[in-house]
Amino acid sequence: MSEVVLYYFDGRGQMESIRWLLAVAGVEFDEVLLKTREEFEKLLKDGSLMFQQVPLVEMDGMKLVQTKAILNYIAGKYNLYGKDLQERVKIDMYAEGTRDLMDMIKILPFVSPDEKTTKLELIQSKALERYFPVYEKALSGSQYLVGDHLSCADVHLLEATLMVEEKFPSILSSFPNLQAFQARMKTIPAISKFLQPGSKRKPPPDDIYVKTVKEVLRF
């Protein structure tokens, strides 16, 4: 088994951004896919889950929990977190924006059909009016969101734009800088590989994923 092991469900959720960063960093990882309540309770009983929740990532002899902490650790270790504190705080701000947008999408499979239409309309309006204009401006005349080096903020932005496009295929039509950014990012070998069929990138959540999550977490 790899030195890096991810414990989560067989789906995107909070783990997908972690998969993205590891893939971009060129880190091989294995996954333990939770399918039953008993498997989750075993992690609880052996003390692996500090706050009784996943994602859980085993790496460098540690058991890491809390999504932001895991992402920041990976970004810092693999030179995806800027060159100084000023760049880091800018990266954090951009990354938090993309995570806010992605979180709105992640909850969609768990809302009622009546709520889904309203949620989708909200996602579309927020993407068009709040989030994408910020990144469009930041990428004006710049290859990356912060500084002159690829950062975790860039990786999260690519992931977020692809997720939104799955719901609204033409949503980037009025954002040429974002379109160009997407095209550049897809030429990075590690990203190109991760986007290919058969990679460890997860597909959009389906009914089986939703059912498993609800049964394992009992909600």
Rank of each mutant, 00 (worst) to 15 (best):
V54I: 15
Y78H: 15
P55D: 03
D103Q: 12
P55C: 07
Y135Q: 06
F132S: 03
K77F: 12
S48Q: 05
S140E: 11
Y144R: 01
Y131F: 15
G147Q: 08
G76F: 10
N79V: 06
S140A: 12
L139P: 00
Q66E: 14
G76H: 08
E129D: 12
R130D: 13
Q53K: 14
F132V: 10
L120C: 13
M59R: 09
M93H: 08
L56M: 05
A75I: 09
L139C: 03
L49K: 04
G97W: 14
D154R: 06
K63V: 02
R88N: 00
Q143P: 05
V89Q: 01
M102E: 07
K116E: 07
L64G: 00
L85T: 10
E136A: 04
L150A: 10
V54K: 02
D84C: 08
K90P: 00
V134F: 11
K116G: 04
Q143I: 00
M62T: 01
E115I: 01
D100H: 14
V111G: 14
P55H: 03
Y144K: 04
E96Q: 07
A138Y: 11
M62D: 05
G82Y: 07
Y131H: 11
D114R: 07
A69T: 04
Y135M: 10
E136L: 11
E129Y: 04
D114H: 09
D100R: 13
S125D: 12
V146C: 11
D46E: 15
Q52S: 14
V111I: 14
L85Q: 12
L108F: 13
I70P: 00
K126T: 09
L64R: 03
M102G: 06
D100W: 13
K126P: 00
K90R: 12
Y144I: 01
D154P: 14
V146W: 09
E121Y: 01
C152K: 13
A69K: 05
F132D: 05
V111R: 12
G147L: 11
S48T: 00
Y78F: 14
L44F: 02
V57P: 02
L44G: 02
G141S: 09
G147M: 10
L85Y: 14
I91S: 07
P109L: 08
I123L: 13
A95V: 02
A153D: 07
A75E: 04
K137A: 12
L101W: 08
K68A: 08
T117S: 15
D46G: 03
L145N: 04
L150K: 13
E87G: 02
K83C: 06
K116H: 06
Q53C: 08
L71S: 01
V155S: 10
T98F: 15
Y94W: 14
T117A: 15
E96R: 01
R88L: 00
